[in-house]
Design a protein around this nucleic acid. Structure first.
Length: 276
DNA sequence: CAAGTTACCTGACGGC
DNA sequence: TGCCGTCAGGTAACTT
């Protein structure tokens, strides 16, 4: 599910409820997520600690604590975090509950359990970028993400642009929805070979990626079936999809029927006329 | 190196 | 009503 805009929305949603709060108690449903839930480490490193920062890096939401330790949540396809009163019944697929010192609960739900929670101890936390994010590419809004970087990264690769954009080692946070949307806005076919893109095209793509992500963040992300923000409200960027999920519908630009193909096993939507 | 396959899981939906 | 196949925002380990 969550790509960068959804994780950013969750991050902004939970942040005011977590800043300065102490994590007092931890509960785990016992169901495994993508990785083994590090229950012992969480209890040792996090319980009794106050939250100092809540940030996002790539598709991870990071909760930082006063002692330097941090929790990293990845949401997979259906993961989510929300703040709840203990009186409010837990959802069917609620797998982690952190009780705060104001008696509210931070709950992690994940129907398909493709998500993960990692605990980075205070000793490793200073080297977060060097270790945990060693292979993660730059943030789309960073200066490092520029046409020269993309041109150089792509020049010797024989690869279609869409899987290239979705590779988090190239750029962080772009998944299937926003790769489709950004390519449409840029007029670039998802099949276009990366080594054949000009600097000008890379420049356009960067601009359009930032525009689409920014607009999606301002819409509170996209809700396909189950995504909600920290207050359990859906996003509404899906109202603004130009191509995603719109096979056969007219292109918003030229009216030609949009096509759907599969690239590297992922649904790819595009306009055969506008995108080259 | 690139691309394809499989796997991890649950649930929604369409066809019969 | 139910059974079956297909599909879904992600990622990683395999094989070809």
């Amino acid at each position: 599910m969550p790509e960068l805009p959804e994780v950013e929305t969750i991050c902004r949603g939970v942040r005011p409820h977590l800043l300065g709060k102490k994590f007092c108690h931890f509960w785990h449903s016992g169901k495994q997520l993508r990785h083994t839930v590090p229950t012992v480490v969480i209890k040792q490193q996090i319980l009794g600690q106050n939250v100092s920062k809540v940030t996002r890096r790539a598709k991870y939401l990071l909760v930082h604590f006063d002692n330097g330790a941090l929790l990293a949540f990845h949401f997979g396809m259906t993961g989510n975090l929300g703040i709840f009163s203990p009186k409010y019944q837990r959802a069917t697929h609620c797998h982690l509950v952190f009780t705060l010192d104001d008696n509210q609960e931070l709950r992690y739900t994940d129907t398909r359990r493709f998500g993960a929670v990692e605990c980075i101890g205070k000793d490793e936390a200073p080297f977060l970028e060097k270790i945990f994010f060693a292979k993660t590419g730059p943030e789309p809004f960073s200066e490092e993400f520029n046409a020269t970087y993309l041109f150089n990264t792509a020049k010797n690769k024989k690869l279609a642009i869409k899987p290239f954009l979705m590779d988090n080692r190239v750029v962080a946070g772009i998944g299937n929805i926003y790769a489709n949307e950004a390519l449409f806005s840029s007029g670039i076919s998802p099949h276009h070979q990366v080594s054949a893109l000009s600097k000008k095209q890379w420049h356009t793509l960067i601009t359009e990626i930032r525009k689409v992500l920014d607009k999606a963040i301002n819409c509170g992300g996209s809700t396909i079936s189950d995504y909600v923000n920290a207050a359990q409200q859906p996003g509404y960027f899906q109202m603004h999809f130009n191509v995603y999920g719109r096979r056969g519908e007219p292109c918003p630009c030229c009216g030609v029927a949009l096509k759907k193909t599969e690239i590297r096993g992922r649904a790819s939507y595009f306009c055969p006329k506008c995108q080259r």
